[in-house]
Amino acid sequence: MATSIDVGTAHAGTARLGIREVVRRLNSALGATLVAALAGNKDKKISYGWAKKNGPEPKDESVARLMLAHRVWTHVSESEGEHVARLWFISANPWLGEISPIEAISQDRSKDVMAAAQAMSEDRFAG
């Protein structure tokens, strides 16, 4: 069944969680190494610190990427399931020029990533 991304609701829901909870959820879903990569950080374990109550704060550009990743994760996992969502995040994606959504998020291609997530949920094929 195709679903559409309600951008306002998704954004508000993610923002209400706060960055530490967003990071905890992404760490659980994708793992710390992938979360650090999508945030644009080379320290593979930094997201564990970001998730802690008194841990370091991610930089603003990392926060934006993390918030986007959570919105997209929520959409894809709700429409396709968590296993498919994880594969979608790490696999080459035809809507993103055959790079993974993780890489596209780290490159700040938010509109492209949202469009790719929408295309996935609508079963549209690139090409």
Rank of each mutant, 00 (worst) to 15 (best):
L38Q: 06
P94A: 11
L17Y: 13
K53T: 08
W95N: 11
A10Q: 10
W73E: 09
G40N: 07
P56L: 11
N54A: 11
N54W: 01
P101N: 08
P58C: 03
R86E: 09
L66A: 08
V35Y: 03
N41L: 09
A69H: 01
A119E: 07
N27H: 04
G49S: 12
R124N: 10
L87H: 08
M120F: 10
A39Q: 05
A69T: 02
E82P: 07
R25P: 01
G49H: 12
A64R: 07
Y48C: 07
R20E: 09
I46M: 07
Q107R: 15
I46T: 11
M1L: 14
L68C: 14
K45W: 00
P101D: 10
T3C: 12
V35A: 06
V84L: 12
T33C: 02
S62C: 14
R109L: 07
S110T: 10
D108Y: 13
E61T: 13
P101M: 06
A116S: 09
A115D: 13
I99E: 13
A32P: 00
R16V: 08
W88Q: 03
A64F: 00
A119P: 06
F125Y: 09
G81E: 03
G81C: 02
V63W: 06
L34Q: 05
A85G: 05
I46D: 04
L66P: 07
H70R: 15
D123F: 15
V35D: 02
D108P: 00
T3I: 08
W95S: 09
L38P: 06
D6C: 09
A15V: 14
R71G: 13
P56G: 11
L17V: 08
V23C: 02
E57Q: 14
H70Q: 15
R86P: 01
E80T: 10
T9K: 13
L17R: 15
L66K: 03
A12E: 11
E57R: 14
G97N: 14
R71W: 03
F89M: 15
S79L: 11
K111P: 00
G13P: 02
K42T: 13
I46Q: 05
N27T: 05
K111Y: 05
E98V: 04
Q107D: 08
A32M: 01
S77W: 02
E103W: 05
A29Q: 06
N41P: 01
G55Q: 06
R20T: 08
K52N: 10
K42S: 15
A51W: 01
G13I: 04
S110C: 06
